[in-house]
Design a protein around this nucleic acid. Structure first.
Lengths: 334, 334
DNA sequence: GTGAAAGCGCTAACAC
DNA sequence: GTGTTAGCGCTTTCAC
């Protein structure tokens, strides 16, 4: 069917070794030989078969990114950061979404096991610490955005606790005292860390937190609206709400609007992530920005370092990158 | 490093051929042998190296999806549809985004040339008809969402002309007569087809279209806002606007709001695609829905058919799937 | 039902 | 500077 290195060698009247040499532009090949090989390549429309190459070299120079859902532009922004840096290092990046099902995630991890990719970056994962630790022993993996407690795995995240703190502080500074919190499920590390930071800020400013103001659900969209409905049914509703994700914040904004509230005036809502939609919404959404590109670059840089380093010396530390407070129209003074 | 089929054979006291047979659960292998092999596999933690397998079988069972930008959930929805069907056929799906640069797109197409993947689905592409035709001769590729004029390549799209017609008709039925159109650049086939349909509807209802009402820019977000500003600066501004994408519609809604207009009352705006954001926006966005999952399933089904069929008998026709009109709050009666 | 052996396309010793 | 050759891990024909 398609030409092989052998065909090129024949066409050029040289050996496959020489062809391979010009293909990998290694030293020790004459001008003349290189030219003849390149001509033959053009003539035959030859393109090297990477299955052969990769098999031989025992590496693919491909990194797989697995995300829970691809519907969020947030993840794709991180992938963009990953891609940008990976390219400079000669790595290709491919992605797959598990749709939050561990079954599919496992299936996709197979690409690691069967040597189709050199490493995997997990943007939020279904795996528990034990499994991750085992995987990490034999393969090059990294977590990004969402850490796992007790996992000795290379991890790159923002300082979620501090992010939660900063969100609360921003609301307090706007004069709010009755501030509520909307979190995800308890086993989402990022969510509970953000709550910890939230509580720390409240404490620091001497504000007692009404237990009714702490709402836990999931990262699912509907949850934000549900939270607002609940808060507004309380005898003394909050004047500001911190949601652990922008999606929840947007959902909450909807809920508030449905209840006839003017968001940014009657009630202030701040999210987390700074997804593209924040700017597009009416009102635009205040948030804690995660620096997606930096997260992506950092995690892939560290991962490639692991891939190219000898077995015994893997880096499995946790790194954090700086977040940023962005106040838009969904928050206003109390 | 990791175990090979040979190790398993040794451990089980059988030949590699037999191990390979149980791996591919082919016939002619005794209960006893199968058991011993499976035990050996478990004991060694063996996982077959697909580079070897793929090299030998000259196929990878992997399909690559290339999209112009991954920031739009729209594309990812199609990928989800692709994935869902591909899985049932034993294919893995990976994706990559070209960020609309042909350079990166070419780089990613390399996976096709170097045999890392069996086929490629392009969701909107930078390639011209000639290039696509050449590619299509030697490789299995398909276009989805966005066709290319003159390309004899397997294509799956919605009937864009009819979609444009239906959008215009929906606005006309709401009583509008002064209806404007916001399109992308001229070489975007989908955009110009939608305009054709728009014009057909207008003609059918005997409405003369003011040339000032036809705005052409690009698919970029900013374009919607710019269009609205322009329309509103006209001596006689339109009362309704059809944008060829939801993103443009959302941008237009913003522009209108900035000008103090109440969208859905003072001006009606309808988009195209039905991205997730349409429901989340305030007001929610009327649109022509593209059935993403169906598009995805259809294109991958046809592509797999091509991959598995002999060289001479490739299907390079264009298929269309049904769209749907969805009226929400961004449109109202004139 | 099982094994021996060839070979997929490539790279990298090694020899010259 | 170039060629010969072994072998990466796997499947598959062909014997038996």
């Amino acid at each position: 069917m398609s030409a092989t290195i052998k065909d090129v060698a024949n066409e050029a009247g040289l050996s496959v070794a020489t062809v391979s040499r010009v293909l990998n532009n290694s030293a020790n090949v004459s001008e003349d030989a290189a030219q003849r090989v390149n001509q033959a390549i053009d003539k035959l429309g030859y393109s090297p078969n990477f299955l052969g190459r990769n098999l031989r070299k025992r590496e693919t120079n491909v990194i797989l990114v697995i995300m829970p859902t691809s519907e969020h532009s947030f993840y794709m922004k991180i992938v963009a950061g990953i891609q940008k840096y990976a390219q400079t290092r000669g790595y290709d990046v491919i992605c797959a979404s598990s749709n939050s099902t561990s079954e599919i995630e496992v299936r996709q991890m197979n690409m690691l096991f069967n040597r189709t990719v050199d490493g995997v970056i997990l943007l939020g994962t279904q795996y528990d610490a034990d499994t991750l630790n085992k995987l990490s022993k034999n393969y090059d993996i990294a977590l990004c955005c969402e850490g796992v407690d007790g996992a000795d795995v290379l991890t790159v995240v923002v300082d979620d606790e501090q992010g939660g703190y900063d969100a609360a502080k921003a609301l307090i500074r706007l004069g709010h005292r009755k501030i509520a919190f909307v979190g995800a499920n308890e086993n989402a590390v990022s969510s509970s860390r953000r709550r910890d930071g939230f509580l720390r800020a409240m404490k620091e400013y001497g504000i007692t937190v009404d237990p009714d103001y702490i709402y836990s659900g999931s990262f699912e969209y509907e949850n934000g609206e549900a939270a607002i409905r609940y808060f507004m049914s309380l005898p003394e509703p909050p004047t500001a709400v911190f949601c652990v994700s922008d999606l929840l914040a947007i959902s909450a904004i909807h809920g508030a609007a449905d209840l006839g509230l003017k968001v940014g005036k009657d009630i202030s809502i701040i999210g987390f992530d700074n997804i593209t939609m924040c700017e597009m919404m009416l009102p635009s959404v205040s948030t804690i920005e995660q620096p997606c590109e930096k997260l992506g670059e950092m995690v892939v840089r560290k991962l490639i370092a692991n891939i190219t380093s000898p077995a015994g010396s893997k880096d499995n530390r946790t790194y954090t990158v700086e977040h940023r407070v962005i106040l838009r129209d969904s928050t206003g003074s109390a």
